[in-house]
């Protein structure tokens, strides 16, 4: 059992959790949060894949991908929340 394996499990778990919530919830804010959790899960499996347990280092390129992902995600989240406020909460009714 190595460090990256633990985080692979956690990343896959976060992804599954987010997908379950997306399938079962209608509340706009909660769906946006689930999409955020999904993105975090993806970043986690990405970084765990770039982690080299032998040297204890992580490939800088996926680190840059994860950083870009965080900034892109906050942009889209802000846009989604602004839209959700304008239409008021429920994503479909």
């Amino acid at each position: 059992m190595t460090t990256d394996l633990v985080y692979h499990v956690a990343g896959a778990g976060l992804t599954g959790l987010a997908l379950w919530r997306l399938a079962t919830c209608r509340d706009a804010l909660r769906r946006i949060m689930a999409l955020n959790v999904l993105a975090i899960g993806i970043a986690m499996v990405l970084l765990a894949s770039g982690f080299d347990a032998a040297t204890g280092r992580t490939d800088p390129v996926p680190q840059a991908f994860a950083l870009t992902g965080i900034v892109v995600l906050v942009s889209v989240t802000a846009a989604l929340l602004a839209l959700a406020e304008r239409i008021g909460g429920r994503s479909n009714d």
């Binding site: 460090t3 804010l29 955020n36 982690f51 950083l67 989240t77 406020e85």
Partner: peptide
């Protein structure tokens, strides 16, 4: 823990901080 301190800083500041503030505002 995954040896990615740059991402950790960004996550704490943006992922948790700014996104959390945005959610609170909208909520």
């Amino acid at each position: 823990r995954l040896a990615a301190p740059d991402v950790a800083l960004a996550e704490a500041a943006i992922g948790a901080g700014v996104t959390g503030a945005l959610f609170l505002r909208s909520a």
